[in-house]
Design a protein around this nucleic acid. Structure first.
Length: 269
DNA sequence: CCATGAACCTGGTCGC
DNA sequence: TGCGACCAGGTTCATG
């Protein structure tokens, strides 16, 4: 499901509820959700410990306890949210954690999402690339690092060890804004276009965060919550419609095994 | 190093 | 209405 802006939105929503709280049990219904730890580990290391911070790194929601952390990855259909009482319909609830008189629910239709337990951020920081909304993500960084890779630009932008947080929607939107064909070899893109790509990535992600992410289909991240960035999408899901820039018809194809939307007229290789 | 395909899962949609 | 094929915002692993 979610890319950086949606994970940011969920993280902030969950943080409001669980900061300074503690969990006394973990009710597990889909065991594979716990990737690298067990209920026993939870009872020994997390139970009763206070949540000291909740933050986002790439597409992970990090729940920080005093000496340990839980990282949640929602993958395609995961939802993490707090409620006052358990819903009657427990379908697709993979696990939940009671706290105070409330519950932190993890619901996941396709069951791809995972919870990880780590002592600190070292493992994740080691495998994840630069945060696109951090100060270190500069035009210079992108120019220098794109030169070093010889890959289809869409594949490269998907690679979380290069830039972390982008996914199918925001890649298509960023490439459209920068007028770059998704199959262009990364080292062959001109400097002005790389600069435009840098600006597009920052613009698209930050605009989306302001609107609470994109909600497509009947997707919501919190009960009351619906992100509105979907209204701003220019090419994603717009196949057959007119390009907002040149009025040519938006094409949909496959790149890196993923549905890819672009304008053949203004995004040339 | 890079590209491709499969695997992990369930549900919605489209064509016949 | 039913059924099969294909699609879905992600990641990881195996294979050329």
């Amino acid at each position: 499901m979610p890319e950086l802006p949606e994970v940011e939105t969920v993280t902030n929503s969950v943080k409001k509820h669980i900061l300074n709280k503690s969990f006394n049990s973990l009710e597990l219904f889909w065991p594979k959700t716990l990737d690298n730890f067990t209920i026993l580990d939870f009872n020994q290391k997390i139970k009763g410990k206070k949540v000291v911070n909740v933050f986002r790194r790439a597409k992970y929601i990090i729940i920080q306890f005093e000496n340990i952390l839980i990282a949640v990855h929602l993958r395609m259909t995961g939802k993490l949210y707090a409620v006052d009482s358990l819903e009657k319909d427990q379908k697709h609830i993979s696990l939940y954690l009671p706290f105070d008189n409330k519950y932190l629910i993890y619901k996941d239709t396709r069951k791809f999402g995972r919870f990880y337990m780590y002592d600190n951020m070292d493992i994740l920081n080691h495998k994840l690339g630069i945060e696109p909304l951090s100060e270190s993500f500069t035009q210079k960084w992108l120019i220098e690092n794109m030169k070093k890779k010889k890959r289809q630009i869409k594949s490269l932008l998907f690679d979380q060890s290069f830039i972390s947080g982008l996914g199918n929607i925001y890649i298509d939107e960023s490439l459209w804004r920068a007028e770059i064909h998704p199959l262009t070899a990364s080292h062959k893109i001109s400097k002005p276009k790389v600069k435009a790509l840098h600006a597009s990535i920052v613009k698209v992600l930050s605009d989306s965060i302001k609107l609470g992410g994109s909600t497509i289909r009947d997707y919501t991240y919190d009960f009351a919550y619906v992100g509105n960035y979907a209204l701003n999408l220019k090419v994603f899901g717009k196949q057959g419609e007119k390009c907002p820039r040149c009025k040519y018809k938006i094409t949909k194809t496959k790149v890196a095994q993923r549905g890819t939307h672009y304008c053949k007229k203004c995004q040339k290789k």
